[in-house]
Design a protein around this nucleic acid. Sequence first.
DNA 1: CAAAAAATTGACTAAATTACTAGGGATTGG
DNA 2: CCAATCCCTAGTAATTTAGTCAATTTTTTG
Lengths: 157, 157
Amino acid sequence: MRLTTKGRYAVTAMLDLAYHSSKRPVALTDIAKRQDISLSYLEQLFAKLRRAGMVTGVRGPGGGYQLSRPAHEINIAEIITAVDETLDSTRCGGKGNCQNDQPCLTHELWMGLSEQIRAYLAGISLGDLLSRHEIQQVANRQDREMQGVSIGEESVN
Amino acid sequence: MRLTTKGRYAVTAMLDLAYHSSKRPVALTDIAKRQDISLSYLEQLFAKLRRAGMVTGVRGPGGGYQLSRPAHEINIAEIITAVDETLDSTRCGGKGNCQNDQPCLTHELWMGLSEQIRAYLAGISLGDLLSRHEIQQVANRQDREMQGVSIGEESVN
DNA sequence: CAAAAAATTGACTAAATTACTAGGGATTGG
DNA sequence: CCAATCCCTAGTAATTTAGTCAATTTTTTG
Ligand code: FES
Ligand code: FES
């Protein structure tokens, strides 16, 4: 499979967005600060998420991004495939041709694994994650740290 | 997770070894030809597999490698971890410290995924794979092609 | 209207990792 | 002995990832 920080960042950012969503859109600068992700890099990820129809951008002051669908209708597999293109474990990309146009000895094994991973991540939605205790605790901590930074110290960014 | 061609090659080579194992050891040059893997690269992988105690090497002419245990007692997860060091999906390596020494928002999610993958691959042994039809077919094809090469054509390697 | 806030886009770069090569021993059967 | 084979270490080329930079467009606020 290809699970890199790109996919991880995308899921993290989407979860942050879901957690802080209300009437008003959420600006990427806020997500970048809370989650410690480069703003420019986030912009690239959200461009893909927008093209995939998972978020909508609102321009201008007070703008930002919003989920296009309720959090419990967005699953993790979608998010990763939107930015990573695939969560396939095969070498051949599912085409069964990685040894001289023929399937290699282990093609079926990786196909099975891919399906396993896909099914697991497709079965978890942003809404599911939001309701988990550990995640609420972490999100809370991050919000407090954000306040601390903006009140107590100079912004170093 | 980190599933690269290194891990895939290792599993493929181990499966080839299991399939061709009998009294006599199997030489890496044969595996390299059948599976289209660079010999030097295979040697590096088998060095790790040997250190992990999964195969034993026999030197000298007629030498090669043998499985240290029966095929049904070697599972896929073992093989991958032996060469790839880990099949962890987290960014932090399970330590929960990837955001400024604190767990990031999605740490628990990746932990769950890692366990899912590990359990799946740990539940499959080389013996299981050997008994699958598709794999026998592919192995057979490879053996025929090998013969064709050594009889009909000059070896291009 | 002017200014500012924010998304949007595309090109480019640096760092890291992977896949692979090169070259030399060490062992052992015939 | 000598050829086949494992064994070991370094090094390198290719690929991929993570991230930067700079310019543009759209919209709201004052
Ligand atoms: S992984 Fe699909 S053919 Fe090798
Ligand atoms: S993945 Fe473990 S702390 Fe972020």
